[in-house]
Amino acid sequence: MEALPLRAGGGMEEIIDRYQNTVYGLALARTGSRADADDVFQEVFLAYYQSGKSFRDEEHRKAWLLRTTINQARRVTSSSWRQRTVPLLEREDALVQFREPEENRVWEALQDLTEDYRLPIYLFYFQELSTQEIAKALAIRPGAVRMRLTRGREQLREKLKGAYFDE
């Protein structure tokens, strides 16, 4: 993996290329809306660019981006303007569409989980983060992450009837 400058502001194109799916995917899992995820994606990298932070290593930078993504997604979904203007279910882009039906089924099942279970499941299975990294990103204890993963997995299996699990 190519080494990128650890100080925010440098090599932005490369950094965006490397982390855009991570940031956007988490934003999408958190907001359930592509438009909101696009907004969060822009806000996170703008904040990164303007922060002027120096990171210890790539893990540190990734953790910072994940944490900022969660915060920005929370801000977007909880803003009074958004709540006042367009209800989430009435938006045309509310449903995230994937190419394959199976993918849509998995995504819908994931969206049916509460946020407490949805984000750990997404970060663990889609982003392949360890429980330690998830704990750091969500600001909870690793034991809580494991518990949520277990319960979230059970709920997913129940919803998907075990069709896509190959643990």
């Binding site: 855009q20 799916n21 995917g25 994937f98 993918e103």
Partner: peptide, 16 residues
């Protein structure tokens, strides 16, 4: 979970 399925979904989760 089916890794191929998740990889496929991940690729589709990119900003516009």
């Amino acid at each position: 979970m089916n890794k191929e399925l998740l990889d496929s979904m991940n690729k589709q989760m990119s900003p516009s």
